[in-house]
């Protein structure tokens, strides 16, 4: 009897090469490289914030509306705080909220999506109704109601984002689970005696997480926008904490005195949003099987 020893031993070598190839394709895509570069700049900025000599919140009325110079690279704001320092600290807030809130939304989406997709019909119907109800409430309305109730805070912003994005992800997860739940390999796992948790975590989630991550990357700039917008409206991060939204809001009030506050608040929002959007699109082009070129 011949055992099947075929020339495909090459396939063993093929796998790591493929992963590296995907990374290379991502970076060789000019959009992907640019996006990645912008995100790296933002992350470095957030990390470097603590190295700066100025305090981001301490008032210094002697140097209000200073023009950019050697001491204050981007000048100072209406309360004499160094704008460059505040801009970099703003990056911390923006990244923590946008990434934290997106990860939380993903987890919520996975949990409810898997429950709806795998659970009994009645559970699916209830969860579906909940998701659709959540999605029918406008974001700003939701934020207003919630924040009137809890008071403005970083956590309130995260909660708003989870309530807005979570149901969207849950719906996508549910559809994918429904497509997978009767797949033959899921049946095969059940035939071996695998329980629900094992099937869901080991065999379902890994097979649906890819497109979800791409979607999440493209949602991050929206979350940055939500955070800035809520802070601008006074519903987000509370004033002394440097958020791009509050910087922008203050700059808006004092635009006749100095334009630099608007720059320090607005520019990083644009840079981060573009960075994540470009990266998300490049990721999709690289990993979406329908678009991937062989």
């Amino acid at each position: 009897m011949s055992s099947a020893v075929d020339p495909a031993t090459a396939a063993v070598v093929k796998k790591p090469r493929k992963a590296r190839g995907a990374m290379r394709r991502l970076v060789s895509d000019p959009l992907g490289a640019l996006g990645l570069g912008l995100i790296v700049v933002t992350v470095l900025a957030a990390l470097a914030a603590g190295l700066l000599p100025h305090d981001p919140v301490k008032l210094n009325p002697m140097v209000r509306f200073a023009a950019p110079g050697a001491e204050h690279w981007l000048g100072t704001d209406n309360l004499g705080r160094d704008l460059f320092t505040r801009m970099l600290y703003g990056a911390r807030i923006a990244l923590v909220i946008s990434i934290g809130a997106t990860v939380a939304s993903l987890l919520v989406g996975l949990l409810f999506g898997v429950l709806a997709g795998f659970g009994p019909r009645w559970l699916d119907s209830i969860l579906l109704l909940l998701m659709d109800a959540m999605k029918s409430v406008p974001t700003v309305m939701l934020a207003l109601v919630l924040i009137t109730w809890t008071g403005p805070s970083l956590w309130a912003v995260v909660l708003v984002v989870v309530l807005v994005n979570g149901p969207t992800y849950a719906r996508i997860v549910r559809t994918q689970v429904l497509a997978l739940r009767n797949a033959e390999f899921i049946e095969a796992e059940r035939a071996l005696g695998a329980g629900f948790l094992r099937v869901a975590s080991l065999h379902v989630v890994p097979n649906i997480i890819g497109p979800l991550l791409i979607l999440a990357a493209m949602d991050i700039p929206i979350v940055v926008g939500i955070e800035a917008g809520l802070s601008f409206l006074g519903l987000g991060v509370r004033p002394p904490t440097p958020s791009w939204g509050t910087i922008l809001f203050d700059g808006f009030s004092y635009i006749r005195d100095s334009i630099w506050m608007v720059v320090a608040g607005g520019l990083p929002i644009v840079i981060t949003a573009l960075g994540f959007t470009f990266l998300g699109e490049a990721l999709r082009d690289t990993f979406d099987p329908k678009l991937a070129k062989r």
């Binding site: 009897m1 011949s2 099947a4 020893v5 075929d6 020339p7």
Partner: peptide, 9 residues
């Protein structure tokens, strides 16, 4: 019976 072996490269 079977043929054995594999297709050539």
């Amino acid at each position: 019976p079977s043929i054995g072996g594999n297709l050539p490269d």
